[in-house]
Design a protein around this nucleic acid. Structure first.
Lengths: 312, 312
DNA sequence: ATAGCTGTTGCCGAAACGGCATCAACATGT
DNA sequence: ACATGTTGATGCCGTTTCGGCAACAGCTAT
């Protein structure tokens, strides 16, 4: 089913690999063929698409415009293919997800497992990244669905949903704070704290609040893995911070306690956004999973905010 | 700039013309070439795209899916082209509009004229149709922007804006009703009435209301042209119905008077929707005009509803 | 039956495509 | 400074694809 001009596909491969020869290897054709198609494109458009450096190719402004068009075409072709396939009863394809780490502990695995019991021929690719990398991967067409902290998103992405979760401290059961119902940041800083490195978005949530407190915090541990931070907290090393999403199951049968964080009397929220490329119609099986994802996150939002009602 | 496989374009032409030979004439190629490309497409997809009748070709279900994809590709190609052109300073292209008749008297001509003073190289194609035909033309990719009565629209269209205008009676200045500020339907039906035929959406707005009144109306005139109805009213033939949009300028310097209609104490609204194909990103010049159109219609909505404040 | 329309097919020349080997330009490593 | 390994671009040539012409079968309306 290759009814699009080879130039389109070659261009796409060159853009991804950043090199004609690398693209040729991926495409299983000679590099000369790729080079010629690119030159032909540039001639027909009347403007160079790449800037040639000695170490590969970089998109020009016009090149980026074409890249956007090509991405739209290829993604819509994918959708068309899956539409045809689903017509003959076969629902299969791959859902590609880029998300931040908080989802990996329970939300995503639960959801994928559950979805696959019903649609066994739908496979999944998930890549864990930082929030801004998630959005970037989505923009570049490397993922279908993105879940990230709800920052300002580029205009070529569409925010499908926005769910707000309460940020909290995570401590071991034996920790002095563990008996409280909620904690303030100041209370936490009296103990050793496991800080997030700037690559994690929790850092950007907490840093401004910590800066407001003039106290000099205890010497702390820094990490860039939510998983690691959680395990450190479980071993009583210190206080970690994250949303309850990341410790859904563990908080019950392990040593972990989740304590909603209060700052100046009000909760600290962590906004989670679900994103999709704006100029795109998703394949049916992807759309279906997206709906479930939104529903499930909405459900968790409701449950968790009910478990820790806001103190007025 | 023809870097898409000929099969795409040929398929598109065949779909529009409904015949291979007709498509070949439009494309300036031999009919055999077109036939072969279609057959090749069908072979690669593994399913027939058209049903061959003795009098042309009709899309199959798979064919309709491909048509949707091809339309997305070609429309996005158009946008890409205009993006590249606008990069080199040249803003040109054609905005294709499908709309109902109420707009032709003042809104659309004013707007187009004003827009062309600023963007002289943007040309316009406007086609006046019934509301459902407007939506259909939009779905088929034959227009960029559609303006129609806000019925339920198909899911492949996106409602950009919804403006609500007050329906009213239009009479000559000498008409007995002309001195009133507002009128009820019953009052109008005491006089000869110029009815809209079912092809006009006004018919569907008024018919249920008229049916509620058990009175037998005066023998009336029926017409399917808003223009004609207005001119008849100006000549004192009877009472016509429409929104004030259609008599914007004429009501001042001519014989016409617009009387907002009241029914059971509340106004009768006519909802106007602005539509665009959902799976599509508009070219910059089209998007620009669309913004102006929405703004202008919003402005008129505000002005007119201020001129005839609703009686509580 | 005739004339006019439809889409399809064989044949053949022309254009496009891809592969191989080669080239110049640059970066890196010794 | 020189060798080596990159990069993208080109000339040559066989293969594939495309398009035009003419003829064909199937159907409709006159």
């Amino acid at each position: 089913m290759r009814f699009h001009s080879p130039a389109i596909q070659y261009f796409h491969a060159v853009r991804r690999t950043g090199s004609i020869r690398a693209a040729a290897r991926v495409l299983n054709v000679a590099s000369s063929a790729v080079s010629r198609q690119i030159l032909k494109l540039e001639q027909e458009i009347g403007s160079p698409l790449f800037e040639r450096t000695t170490r590969g190719l970089t998109l020009t402004t016009v090149g980026e415009m074409l890249a956007r068009h090509v991405m739209n075409v290829l993604q819509d072709l994918d959708r068309f293919r899956s539409d045809v396939a689903s017509l003959s009863g076969a629902w299969h394809g791959t859902v590609s997800i880029a998300c931040i780490e908080s989802l990996t502990e329970s939300v995503l695995p639960d959801l994928i497992a559950s979805h696959r019991t019903r649609a066994r021929r739908v496979s999944f690719t998930t890549e864990v990244k930082g929030s801004s990398d998630v959005l970037e991967a989505l923009s570049r067409g490397e993922a279908d669905i993105g879940i990230a902290m709800a920052l300002r998103h580029p205009p070529d992405l569409r925010q499908v949903a926005l769910k707000r979760f309460r940020l909290g401290a995570v401590v071991a059961r034996e920790h002095p704070l563990a008996r409280r119902k909620t904690v303030t940041l100041a209370q936490c800083l009296a103990f050793p704290v496991i800080h997030a490195l700037p690559e994690l978005s929790i850092y950007h949530l907490l840093q401004p609040l910590i800066a407001q407190l003039s106290e000099t915090p205890e010497p702390a541990i820094q990490a860039n893995s939510i998983d690691l931070m959680r395990e450190l907290a479980a071993r009583g090393v210190g206080v970690a911070f994250q949303t309850q999403l990341g410790i859904g199951r563990l908080s019950r049968d392990s040593q972990l306690v989740f304590l909603p964080l209060d700052n100046a009397g009000s909760p600290v929220w962590s906004d989670l956004g679900i994103y999709v490329r704006a100029e795109r119609t998703l394949p049916a099986y992807t759309e279906s999973f997206l709906q479930e994802l939104v529903r499930e996150l909405g459900e968790r939002e409701r449950r968790e905010n009910a478990a820790y009602p806001q103190v007025a």
